[in-house]
């Protein structure tokens, strides 16, 4: 379980998160939604232990989130930190050398699903294929928590579709919890169990999406338009 207790995060004088408390269910696909600059990426970085809270506490499966939390958390960054001179295969071998839970067999399976080739040089990959490679690396780890920061942003519709399909195919929902931040709400909406809505550094709700549809006759996008435009 992921739990935030009165967490604030300040970058200089700017508040990214303000006194946020919530806990997240396990075995779900969870979407973190909100406008640009609302604190979505900061939330993921805090869970991944890549940023430290200014105050408050974050725990992941009972363990305080620090840099060492990476043994239970797989994190996909919005930017890509690949060495251009690596091949796809080198990158996979590198991941395997860094994470004991990395499964080369699963990586190969996802690679072929994504139609990537181990011998391709990373500098020659299209943006779409770099996006796909990030998915391979993130999902090939056998960890309880997977964090994905904007996995679809800037990619064409076919790549987005293959990434979403890859997610459904390769996550083990009985053992894994997935958190995704995204602006591509319409595309991600059918695969989300839960949404976390963030606005101006505050979590305004953690909501089961099917319940939202049942109670309000509204999807995430309708709901956002209503809530976020009220000001």
């Amino acid at each position: 379980m992921i739990e935030f207790k009165q967490v604030s995060k300040r970058y200089g004088t700017k508040h990214a998160l303000k006194d946020v408390s919530f806990s997240l269910p396990t075995g779900k696909v969870i979407g973190i939604i909100g406008e640009n600059g609302s604190g979505k990426s900061t939330t993921l970085k805090l869970i991944a232990g890549l940023a430290k809270p200014t105050s408050g506490e974050i725990s992941v499966n009972g363990e305080v989130a620090s840099r060492r939390i990476s043994h239970v958390v797989s994190y996909l960054s919005e930017s890509d930190g690949f060495y251009p001179f690596f091949t796809v295969g080198d990158m996979i071998d590198f991941y395997q050398s860094q994470f004991a839970d990395f499964s080369p067999a699963k990586a190969n399976e996802i690679l072929s699903f994504m139609k990537l080739d181990r011998s391709q040089k990373i500098k020659n990959l299209s943006k779409g294929n770099r996006g796909r490679l990030k998915i391979v690396l993130t999902l090939a780890r056998d960890v309880p928590i997977i964090l994905m920061d904007e996995p679809l942003s800037g990619l064409d519709p076919l790549v987005r579709d293959s990434i979403i399909k890859g997610l459904i195919s390769f996550i083990d929902i009985e053992k894994q919890t997935v958190l995704i931040t995204t602006h591509e709400i319409e595309e991600v909406e059918p695969i989300l169990d839960t949404m976390v809505a963030i606005k101006d550094g505050r979590v305004i709700c953690v909501q089961d999406v099917e319940e939202l549809r049942m109670q309000e006759n509204a999807g995430i996008l309708d709901w956002m338009k209503r809530v976020y435009q009220e000001g």
Partner: peptide, 17 residues
Amino acid sequence: VREMAIQSGVNPNTVQR
């Protein structure tokens, strides 16, 4: 459950339900 999830593009939890 997983096949149906992939075919219809939804979450396996939804198919289970």
